[in-house]
Write a protein that binds this DNA or RNA. Structure first.
Length: 550
RNA sequence: UGCCCGAUGGUGUAACUGGCAACACGCUUGAUUUUGAUUCAAGAAAGUCCAGGUUCGAGCCCUGGUCGGGCAACCA
């Protein structure tokens, strides 16, 4: 029952184009540069581009924008493909801007022939100098008036490797006084004697983004080329090339990139965090990278729902990370099998329970009616959460306290009769009595307790490592940071501790999601070994109780 | 001193293209609950950046401001 959802501005453009007969079908593309891992911001773009094609029966190409050999690597290509697939999308074709190097070269020759491009011998500094500023016009390069023949010859020599890096560039001849800085004779080709991850050493001149992107769109007959707002000023140049080259008129549309609280979405800075070891790699569960959130336990479904909900518009935004967490919980609530794990144990001894006895008690895996069950061993010695006991509880505390009763989930009701402490006054053991008739499922005790807590049999408990994650940054709006962003990293973003799990968790597998009762959603980390299971906390449970205590 | 975008509850996105501002998250209250979770119900919260104008009628159109963002890499 897909409700009549209002269209975002790009969908409106597409529907208008379709209705006007401008296109009969649409083609989009997702164009990452393989110089880093994909993050949540890219997920928004992926969902948009692929989503549009799906909605309107078109296709989406995956095109790597690999025009700068010095920063790009095959490792990134592979991770990007994996991430897009994981998110659940299929591209029509896997393409590379570098595949178009021959055509792009011909385009450049065409521009030169039309007198619209020239080879400039100026240094990088001189070119910057002559470029002017946003408020001051630029000045023509002394090489601007070279003849077509000379330009053709020089450009061929550039390609042939007769010059060193930086010695010459090819520039478009547009207008050095243009109010749009990008139209002030932009550089089309630069010399880089560098090894390219795909073309190897075949080329020593490489096209700039502006001279590659639009033409690549055009060659693929992309109808709607969707990018982020910072490319708005590039559109004028994008259209200029299409017009002068007389090629298929792809059109560019821009939307606001995703920003999230306590999160940083700059590939450059994320790379820095990785290189400087502030995190343990691109897939560190604290990273906003897709590989990071995947390892953390976020699901593709949750991310798609999130991208769907945040919408697409042109105004700057800062989205509450809590919204993403909402969708993660929403999905995990239905797919996460329930398990009991005690994080900060305190011993409970059930004085009226036989010392050698072990009962296997069933407990449902999911909250729904017909849920499957697993069994949990129950015995005289148990672990419960330290915070589930209070010696002097406030009025509305309905867990365990001296003389107070609590329900052990899926087991019995117990009453605390004695508190044992060490010399430091710390509680070391709680001696309790259980109500035999209160067994879960066949409770005839008639006793009603409000509190229900999780537990695990001390004798059978499986020690596991849990990694508890918190926000990577201390500040809500990372874009407001002045000075070094690394000074604002949250020192408590990762807490590692040992916890005691019910035996069933020994069978946990990669890719499975769990809800550790009352503690949050977790998944098995790939660092796990046969003898040591490691669980990542994906997200905590919603908590409406502890929060108003603060 | 320039050019280009944008402005709607705390946050994000809507408003059938000019007809009494809606949805989601978050928040509050209550019910249910063997997870203080989930679920369910109710509620608070903007009068649409400001000032003019057009109109019977403006969040939508026009004019002028204000504020925010972007633009001077041989990066994408």
């Amino acid at each position: 029952m897909a409700e009549e959802k209002s269209l975002n501005f790009i969908e409106e453009i597409i529907e208008a184009d379709l209705k006007a007969g401008k296109h009969t079908t649409i083609a989009t593309r997702f164009p990452p540069e393989p110089n880093g891992y994909l993050h949540l911001g890219h997920a928004k773009s992926i969902c948009l581009n692929f989503g549009l094609a799906l909605k309107y029966g078109g296709k989406t190409n995956l095109r790597f924008d690999d025009t700068n050999p010095v920063t790009e690597e095959t490792e990134y290509v592979e991770s990007i493909k994996g991430d897009v697939e994981w998110l659940g999308f299929r591209w029509a074709q896997e393409l590379y801007a570098s595949d178009y190097f021959p055509q792009l070269f011909d385009f450049a020759v065409k521009l030169i022939s039309k007198g619209l491009a020239y080879v400039d011998d100026s240094t990088s500094e001189q070119i910057a100098e002559m470029k002017g500023t946003p408020t001051q016009p630029g000045k023509d390069s002394p090489y601007r008036t070279r003849s077509v023949e000379e330009n053709l010859k020089l450009f061929a020599e550039m390609k042939a490797g007769q010059y060193r890096d930086g010695e010459k560039v090819l520039r478009a001849k547009i207008d050095m006084t243009h109010t749009n800085m990008l139209m002030r004779d932009p550089i089309l080709y630069r010399i880089k004697h560098a090894h390219h991850h795909r073309t190897g050493d075949a080329w020593c001149i490489y096209p700039m983004y502006d001279f590659a992107h639009g033409q690549s769109d055009s060659l693929e007959q992309i109808t709607h080329s969707i990018c982020t707002l910072e490319f708005v000023p590039h559109r004028e140049l994008y259209d200029w090339f299409i017009e002068k080259l007389e090629i298929y008129p792809s059109r560019q549309y821009e939307f606001a990139r995703l920003n999230m609280t306590y999160t940083m979405m700059s590939k450059r800075k994320l790379l820095q965090l990785v290189n400087e070891k502030h995190v343990n790699g691109w897939d560190d569960p604290r990273m906003p990278t897709l590989s990071g959130v995947r390892r953390r336990g976020y699901t593709a479904q949750a991310i798609r729902d999130f991208c769907d909900r945040i919408g697409v518009a042109k105004r700057d935004n800062l989205i509450d990370i809590g919204l993403l967490e909402f969708f993660v919980r929403e999905d995990l609530n239905t797919i996460g099998a329930r398990r009991m794990v005690v994080f900060d144990p305190v011993k409970v001894v059930i004085t009226n329970y036989e010392e050698t006895k072990t009962e296997m008690l069933p407990s449902e895996n999911y909250p729904d009616e017909g849920s499957t069950v697993r069994t949990m061993p129950f015995g005289r010695d148990l672990w419960i959460e330290r915070e589930d006991f209070m010696e002097n509880p406030p009025k509305k505390y309905f867990r365990l306290a001296p003389g107070q009763m609590v329900r052990l989930k899926s087991a019995y009701i117990i009453a605390c009769e004695e508190v044992i402490k060490n010399d430091k006054g710390e509680v070391t053991e709680l001696r309790c009595r259980y109500i035999p008739e209160s067994r879960s499922g066949s409770d005839t005790s008639g006793i009603n307790v409000k509190g229900v807590i999780h537990w695990v049999s001390a004798k059978h408990a499986l020690p596991v490592e849990v990694r508890l994650y918190d926000r990577l940054f201390k500040v809500e709006d990372v874009s407001e940071i002045e000075g070094d962003f690394r000074d604002y990293l949250n020192p408590d973003s990762l807490k590692v501790q040992t916890a005691y799990a019910e035996p069933e968790l020994g069978n946990a597998k990669r890719g499975e999601h769990f809800q550790f009762l009352r503690m949050g959603y977790f998944c098995l980390d790939p660092d796990s070994t046969h003898s040591k299971k490691i669980f990542n906390r994906t997200v905590t449970l919603r908590d409406t109780w502890t929060k108003d205590k603060k």
